[in-house]
Design a protein around this nucleic acid. Structure first.
Lengths: 121, 121
DNA sequence: CCGTATCCGATCCGATACTG
DNA sequence: CAGTATCGGATCGGATACGG
């Protein structure tokens, strides 16, 4: 993805930052600290390596995620949220997640939440 | 759009709620009170009527937006944010908007913001 | 003014194969 | 373990025409 330089509205950027099937999930996976690529791949059910890397690259370009490489073999990198934009995006996503939880409860999908340990049974 | 009933993760819902090019912008247009369809169409540059109606319908299905019809001619309806999910989504979007503003400032797009009156020049 | 339907190009994303 | 490249089906979104 080529990053645009002609945004005229902050919400356009917001859309580009979070669009796609996986970005919000990837960000949430990072909210408790840095994770390796394979850790993310393992933690996110159904994602392909291609999508994971592609979306991580975009999140880095927008300054929400950073990467640290450790030298030596086997290769090892860690992805983590940036102090400013990344952390604040989590704050916003937590509000949205609660909206999603409410929606699930209102629409009879409470059991799935209990299974995942998101709410108490 | 057929609404799913098999969500297993609240963030999936979040994604469905905000996905698409226009949803965040539509929600923001409603943050100061109810607006008619034509008002929205006028206020959102570049949106087609088809997309506007389609996205409004989805936002209603997720419980973020509600609609009131006034009888009489010419036909008149007003769209507005729901007290619970709609308002809270705006809280989240405001945080995200600020991230977008920061991004624009950091990347030399400050002038556009001043033109729109989002920040002071 | 409000809302629906269809056509069609652009984009997204999953599968797969390959490199360092 | 980390990352790139390509192909093809599914979905998105703009234009346009039509109906209440």
């Amino acid at each position: 993805m080529k990053i645009r330089t002609d945004y005229t509205c902050p919400l356009e950027i917001v859309h580009d930052i979070i669009k796609g099937k996986w970005k919000t999930i990837i960000l949430f996976q990072l909210k408790n600290g840095s994770v390796s690529l394979s850790g993310l791949e393992h933690g996110i059910e159904g994602i392909s390596q291609k999508m994971l890397l592609e979306q991580l690259r975009e999140l880095q370009q927008f300054g929400l995620v950073e990467k640290k490489k450790y030298s030596g073999y086997p290769l090892h990198v860690e992805y983590y949220l940036s102090d400013d934009k990344g952390i604040r995006m989590i704050d916003a996503l937590k509000i949205m997640q609660q909206i999603g939880i409410d929606y699930m409860i209102e629409n009879g999908m409470e059991e799935e939440l209990k299974c995942k340990g998101i709410i108490r049974g």
